[in-house]
Design a protein around this nucleic acid. Structure first.
Lengths: 126, 126
DNA sequence: ATTATTGTACTATAATACTAGTACAATAGT
DNA sequence: ACTATTGTACTAGTATTATAGTACAATAAT
């Protein structure tokens, strides 16, 4: 998996890393057990401080998304996070509502949103 | 015109305001001469500090998008600005990225979000 | 056991961004 | 002139972000 960070985006480095990992998991480019680059390696690749990478990994570790083992590396967690179905649907609805609300505030239509998401569906699946 | 602020987005309040105004002008929901809410009023509506609203207005004033007059109010400039298609797409992507990231954090997949939106498409207006 | 590799902890620091609070200044309306 | 309404300036506090440096701890490989 290839990571990219955009210093000009204004989005914190550590968050960009987190997002990319979560997305990759979300559309199965990363699966349980997959290994991530080492803290030091990714720091070198992205030309940022190791601590910044570590912070991203840590945050995901806390959330239970990653397993880290000293001396071994950092891996995608094997257990899918168990969230009650009801809670899931509630969250899904909330997210959609918010997405549409914000889109509407910018004059973006539901169709445009759907198209944008459709495009993304094409990107990931290798 | 209705403004929306999402404190959880990580995007500065003042920038969210700026973006919404520009987009509204871009697709003619706001036209030259239209009056914006007063600094104080919008601050109350959004439950934020007046300075934050003022900053947004100021930045747009500098760009020549708005005219402000003390004692009178703040108005959309007469020269229509075009929102480049690229900019539109960038904003669309930003919104999608952010919401998908939150979705991913709850173990929701891109497909699930798309399906949920598809359902809403049938229901009526977004 | 030893060594290399991995992640972790801690401190410090700098820079910046954001917001709030408060007081001020200009204009409109009367 | 007076007052209300409007935008503006100044100051300061708080949080965030990122980096650097150093040392430590756990595991794997040998």
């Amino acid at each position: 998996m290839r990571f990219v960070i955009d210093p000009k985006s204004g989005i914190p480095f550590y968050r960009q890393i987190i997002d990319q990992i979560q997305f990759a998991i979300g559309d199965s480019r990363l699966c349980g057990g997959d290994r991530l680059p080492t803290v030091r390696q990714l720091a070198v690749d992205l030309k940022i401080n190791p601590n910044t990478v570590a912070r991203a990994y840590q945050e995901l570790e806390i959330k239970g998304v990653l397993n880290t083992q000293m001396g071994t590396g950092t891996f995608i967690g094997n257990e899918k996070i168990e969230i009650p179905e009801l809670e899931r649907r509630r969250m899904l609805n909330q997210i959609c509502t918010e997405l549409l609300s914000r889109a509407a505030a910018y004059g973006l239509t539901l169709d445009e949103v759907r198209d944008a998401l459709a495009e993304r569906a094409g990107e990931g699946r290798a």
